[in-house]
């Protein structure tokens, strides 16, 4: 198990608990979902990246407004034929990033479908960010304009940004903004790490019902 237990903090400190956030990456295959996650977790700021087995699941802890937030990043398979599996991944996730490729119109159409699905199916508290990736290629091959993406995001009350996993543009900011919004919207400390560890230990001990 890669999960590391943290020393228990006195709760009297108030609000300095670490908050765990499950974040799903959605979007057509090939738009760079995994690259964004990899860039974020392993990019220039490597010190907080914990060791995980593969790139499909990544974690990173950041500090937002004095609160430490641990992202569990769940990558999903974007191929059309795995579409029906997505609910298993985004179930119970408080955050999602929907990625499209600014050089591909079809990926943007797909992203719109994702937005619709998430707004209908997932919990209403979910914080969603629409991200137009491959912004570094925008000058040569852009087919989805920045306004189109921004308008669509605003219409549904989502965060919006254009990123580039290649150059690292806006990637860090996007996650920080997401974390800030989540911290702001959900003040109640839900699944924090301390609780998590305690439950896991008791699970190990028992093993049977």
């Amino acid at each position: 198990m890669t999960q590391r237990s943290q020393p228990k903090q006195p709760s009297a400190a108030g609000g300095s608990k670490s908050k765990q956030i499950k974040l799903v990456l959605l979007g057509e295959s090939g738009v760079g979902k995994s690259s964004i996650a990899l860039r974020y977790v392993r990019g220039e700021f490597n010190e907080n990246g914990e060791a995980t087995i593969g790139a499909a699941f990544l974690t990173k802890t950041v500090n937002v407004r004095g609160q430490s937030v641990k992202f569990d990043i769940w990558d999903t398979a974007g191929q059309e034929r795995y579409h029906s599996l997505a609910p298993m991944y985004y179930r119970g996730a408080p955050a999602a990033i929907i990625v499209y490729d600014v050089t591909s119109k079809s990926s943007f159409t797909r992203a719109q479908a994702w937005i619709k699905e998430l707004l209908q199916q997932a919990n209403s508290q979910m914080v969603i960010c629409l991200a137009g990736n491959k912004a570094d290629m925008a000058s040569e091959a852009r087919t989805v304009s920045r306004e189109e993406g921004k308008d669509h995001a605003e219409e549904h009350g989502l965060l919006f940004t254009e990123t580039s996993a290649k150059t690292g543009l806006n990637v860090e900011d996007m996650f920080i903004n997401l974390a800030a919004k989540i911290v702001a919207t959900t003040m109640s400390p839900g699944n924090d790490i301390e609780e998590n560890v305690r439950l896991e230990e008791s699970g190990k001990k028992g093993g049977c019902c």
Partner: peptide, 27 residues
């Protein structure tokens, strides 16, 4: 049987993947 809290970790992720794989094959 696994505690829901564990489901949010790496193990949970790969279990979801295994479940997906099974579902794909079933259908």
């Amino acid at each position: 049987l696994i505690n829901p809290a564990v489901m949010n970790t790496e193990g949970g992720y790969y279990l979801t993947s295994l479940n997906s794989a099974v579902l794909v094959l079933k259908n």
